[in-house]
């Protein structure tokens, strides 16, 4: 009888842990933020996208992003037009994607509120050009929500983004990309 009670208790405990401890599974959001910022002596240029689709696998650390280029909003309509039509050719290349890994996934305890850091490395694709990217991300786990923040810089020419000489002084060779996303456990 005691064995049955112990077995029953173990099953209930394991079941409860599986339900409450989201240490596995996929975390995702469709409302992540990406900001890019270009600073030159002539002009600062920034744009935001608030519908970034991203997810990570809490077991393997696999991390993916998909972002619509046209959905970056600039303060000025003319900047947005030039960005889409002249530089990013966003009708031809509508998306940018990132596939990579959270390198120290095991160090990020999703079951315990706290702040954790890990390098992220992977491949960023824009305009059909894929380049390696690596940066350090900060993960803040709070009440089941995982906020991730990271930033890195890219050079537009690496992605075949041609900047005309007439506007080159206004656009930096180092564009800062900042990511800020609140992931929740995907219960599907």
């Amino acid at each position: 009888m005691n064995k049955i009670i112990i077995l029953f208790a173990a099953i209930v405990t394991l079941g409860f842990m599986a339900f409450t401890n989201h240490s596995g599974g996929v975390y995702k959001t469709n409302t992540g933020n990406i900001n890019f910022f270009s600073h030159t002596a002539v002009e600062d240029i920034a744009a935001d996208n608030h519908k970034v689709k991203t997810a990570f696998d809490a077991k393997t650390g696999k991390l993916q992003f998909s972002v619509l280029i046209k959905d970056f909003e600039f303060p000025k309509a003319l900047m947005q037009e030039h960005f889409n039509e002249n530089y990013m050719e966003s009708t031809t290349y509508p998306k940018s994607t990132f596939t990579g890994t959270i390198d120290k996934m095991s160090a990020v305890n999703l079951a315990k509120d706290g702040t954790y850091k890990s390098t992220i490395s992977g491949k960023l694709t824009m305009k059909d050009v894929t380049k390696d990217v690596s940066t350090i991300a900060t993960f803040v786990v709070k009440g089941g929500v995982v906020n991730a923040k990271a930033s890195f810089t890219i050079n537009p020419t690496d992605y075949h983004i041609a900047i005309p000489k007439t506007v080159a002084p206004k656009i930096s060779n180092e564009i800062k990309i900042s990511v800020d996303a609140d992931y929740t456990h995907d219960t599907k």
Binding site: F56, Q64, S66, E73, K95, T97
Partner: peptide, 21 residues
């Protein structure tokens, strides 16, 4: 209309959205 987000090549991002802003 901004386009169509999501990709079958990205297995974690299984849903697809037509996006309007």
């Amino acid at each position: 209309c901004m386009g169509f987000n999501g990709s079958e090549e990205l297995d974690l991002l299984d849903s697809k959205d037509v996006v309007l802003s």
